[in-house]
Design a protein around this nucleic acid. Structure first.
Lengths: 211, 211
DNA sequence: GTCTATACACTGATAGAC
DNA sequence: GTCTATCAGTGTATAGAC
């Protein structure tokens, strides 16, 4: 008998509950913002009493920080396309595809991230200063290599990255506006394909990459 | 003596107070979101007692709606460049310039707008459905004319507009992230010029416009 | 681990003296 | 028109029974 060991069943239960709370929280934070979200509503969406949410995440801020961290990881993971690529046509093209796909499948996460940054990143400023800065500088180096090799026009790598981020995330963050302009109906598969094609076409041609 | 007429001095005082409250509110709503903003903080920033804010704007929602409306008007006004232009090089180029300039001079307004749309436009949905839809459809017609005249590539006008909106507003909405990536310091005049040039260069070349 | 009941702080809004 | 005092409602967080 070892009372130091937590039974596996309880570990699973814990993870299961944490997961369902995190998913509910992402949705509620995305729809209402940090200030507008309430622990009561998160609990209701998760299907748990409010006190249980506080049992797993002691404060609202801690729960929020977990949500934003998760999004950031998804976000960075999708950028692996940059490394393996032999040139900008493949690397940037695949990166745009990956980011558009995230906007489609994780719109709530994108909105929470946007909201956090817009309000000055009070909770995850350390992420910006460490991980994001490092990732960005690495990608700038790669792009500069491509420019030096004559594979694309000599555009500012930094502003190119901003252009890619903004244009792809726009389909998640401003999805409601886009839907309203789309006669009020959600984008179909064809609509998403057209969006992806248009963004890639303009950006790739804009930086002098042959497709 | 006509007691039906409000003295001019009081009218001016009213407008003056309303203006200072609206400016304070724009700042606070941008930094904290609708839910995170408090009437007390808005009053403090405006330098007035909280009750006075309620005297001019009876509810928080009414004040917020005024703020968002004002931004929308600024935003639409800047798009007049489209009409007068003889072609895409001039029209779209000037539109990008104007939108970048708004991001620089009215970042708080842009953030409030973004926040409102991200949360499903609960307050200004009617604006989206009427004014924004009308404006967008009008601009799509103009772009289609340019395409038909062979002045630019046959890109989707709708997605081109989204690309312009997202890439320019990004410098306001994600200004904090950009500043963090810029070694923590605000963008200089040269930085802004470089950003404007990069965005215009990539988009104009990307749609096949000679510059 | 789970859940009910509740403490405590804060917010939007208003009443009423000036 | 201005401002202090205050109310009613709601939010986060926790205590304590199970």
């Amino acid at each position: 008998m070892n009372s130091n060991v937590t039974p596996i069943r309880k570990q699973n239960k814990r993870r299961e509950n944490e997961l369902v709370i995190l998913q509910a929280a992402e949705k509620v934070f995305a729809e209402a913002g940090f200030g507008g979200a309430t622990m009561q509503l998160i609990a209701d969406v998760a299907g748990l009493p409010k006190a249980n949410v506080h049992y797993y995440f002691s404060t609202k801020e801690e729960l929020y920080r977990q949500v934003v961290s998760n999004i950031f990881e998804v976000w960075l993971a999708a950028a692996g396309t940059f490394e393996a690529a032999s040139g900008p046509a493949e690397g940037i093209g695949a990166y745009i595809d990956a980011k558009m796909e995230i906007s489609r499948t994780h719109p709530a996460g994108s909105k929470v991230w946007a909201s956090e940054v817009m309000h000055g990143a009070p909770i995850i400023q350390d992420y910006l200063e460490t991980k994001l800065v490092a990732w960005t500088n690495g990608r700038i180096d790669v792009i500069n290599t491509w420019i030096a090799a004559g594979l694309m026009d000599p555009v500012s790598p930094r502003h190119l990255l901003y252009l890619i981020w903004s244009s792809t995330q726009h389909y998640a963050d401003f999805g409601h506006q886009i839907q309203t302009l789309n006669t009020g109906t959600p984008l179909t598969d064809d609509d998403w394909q057209a969006a992806k094609t248009a963004v890639k076409q303009i950006i790739l041609k804009g930086i002098g990459v042959k497709t």
